[in-house]
Simulated assay, not measured.
Amino acid sequence: MKCCDLITGAKVPRFIGGIETQLTVLAKGLVDEGCDVSLIVYDHGQRPEEIVDGVKVLKAYGLSGGIRGLRWIDRAKSLWAAMRRADADIYLQMGAGVETGLVGLGCNRVGTSRRHFIYCLASDLDYSDMLSRGRLGWEGKAYLWGLRRADLVVAQTERQRQGLQKAVGVNALVMPMAAAAHPVSTAPARNGEHNFRRVLWIGRPSKEKRLDWLLELARRCPEFQFQVIGTANSNTEYETRVLGEARQVPNVELVGRVAGQDMHAVYQNGRILCNTSIREGFPTTFLEAWSYGLPVVTTFDPDDIVARNGLGRVSCTVNDQANALRELHADPEVYGRISQAAKSYYNENHAISAVSRRFRLAFDVMLGQRQPVNECAVYV
């Protein structure tokens, strides 16, 4: 079986976000499941084709160049050319955008017969704001056109499935995404009092992620050290202001962008992951933190998974988050119980092997190689 993941939305090498991380992990897992996997990415100066960890990486178009309003013609041609080089049975794309429509159309153009198309929701925005995005809503229309032509739509949560059905009448299958497990290390884990008080905040300092909440939390909890990982994608008034404020808070450290291979040390030396977002999809950072046994203190709880499975604390106010941090720090027994639950939940639901196996089963059903099985839709 040949399948192709498309991460043309990845601004490589400027940043790697949740979509790019999850698709890269899934691609490697599908190789282990016996699939012939290609990744299509932006052209950032690399060779046209490379092999990385058994995955064929094909470049499509660059981020710049072309006449605004007309550049998508050249980009579509470049994307479809990369799809032809992949020559896959199934094309999988994640994250709402013009690419969704282009991939849906491309599946009719890459061979003598139509190829299968899978679309994966990345965020709750995929069934709300993205439907009207772009000038005169053209990007949202292109996205919806492709969405309706997908042979299978995958949601990460039941909330996403219901939201998509209500918004546009499209059915989705709920399947969890994967995150890479932490590497085996002989280094001491979270040693020292300083590390035991380190709270991680990972993401873009955009308005919907509310870094300003974290700054207020840091002011109320001077006994903790808050480490902010990530950089702004643009220079909005909010991002400029909040990063300036962060530099004035003594117990906040702005680390900036961290390469994927260096995130192990970040999680290894953290104590708790804090999330202050208004809304998300299913944060990859949650999965990564749980693989290390880190509890999450969060304002966003996808499908109430954190609360139902005892994976941290859900807090609706800054004051509640402060209380949660102090509770987890003060009671080693509670912390240990949550830490173990987090590791178990990750291993059972989001380990690469488990998720890749579910996707492989879904692929087999799509290609008529086996009967549908409930395992494809398991989500705890």
Rank of each mutant, 00 (worst) to 15 (best):
372 P>V: 09
37 V>R: 07
128 S>W: 07
374 N>M: 00
191 N>Y: 12
353 S>I: 12
159 R>C: 07
32 D>E: 15
199 V>F: 14
166 K>P: 09
8 T>S: 14
44 H>E: 15
35 C>V: 03
31 V>H: 11
156 Q>D: 15
179 A>P: 03
312 G>C: 02
259 A>L: 12
28 K>E: 11
5 D>E: 13
255 V>H: 01
243 L>N: 07
157 T>S: 09
311 L>K: 01
280 E>Y: 09
206 S>K: 07
193 E>M: 10
197 R>M: 04
375 E>G: 11
216 E>F: 02
145 W>E: 03
201 W>A: 10
19 I>S: 05
69 G>Y: 12
51 I>R: 08
160 Q>M: 10
291 S>N: 10
322 A>M: 08
26 L>G: 03
104 G>P: 05
62 G>I: 09
29 G>N: 01
29 G>A: 07
310 G>N: 05
144 L>R: 07
78 S>E: 06
54 G>Q: 02
56 K>P: 15
2 K>T: 00
16 I>Y: 12
206 S>D: 05
97 G>P: 08
168 V>W: 13
22 Q>G: 06
169 G>L: 15
9 G>R: 15
14 R>W: 12
299 T>S: 09
45 G>F: 10
141 K>S: 01
265 A>S: 12
210 R>C: 06
149 R>T: 11
318 V>Q: 06
193 E>R: 11
360 R>Y: 01
101 G>C: 08
350 H>D: 13
113 S>I: 14
80 W>G: 09
371 Q>N: 13
365 V>W: 04
283 P>G: 14
110 V>R: 02
136 L>M: 03
83 M>W: 03
45 G>Q: 03
333 E>K: 00
114 R>Y: 06
109 R>Y: 04
109 R>I: 02
272 I>A: 06
10 A>P: 00
74 D>W: 09
255 V>E: 03
167 A>I: 08
361 L>D: 10
120 C>D: 03
359 F>Y: 05
267 Y>N: 00
69 G>A: 05
197 R>P: 03
87 D>N: 12
191 N>T: 14
237 E>K: 10
288 E>F: 14
77 K>R: 10
375 E>N: 03
302 P>S: 04
180 A>V: 11
68 R>E: 11
185 S>R: 12
302 P>N: 01
261 Q>W: 07
35 C>K: 02
16 I>K: 01
101 G>S: 14
258 V>G: 00
8 T>M: 14
15 F>H: 10
46 Q>V: 11
368 G>W: 14
129 D>Y: 02
108 N>D: 04
331 D>P: 02
181 A>S: 09
166 K>V: 15
163 G>E: 13
31 V>G: 05
283 P>D: 10
231 T>R: 08
312 G>K: 01
276 T>N: 11
67 I>V: 13
94 M>T: 15
337 R>A: 08
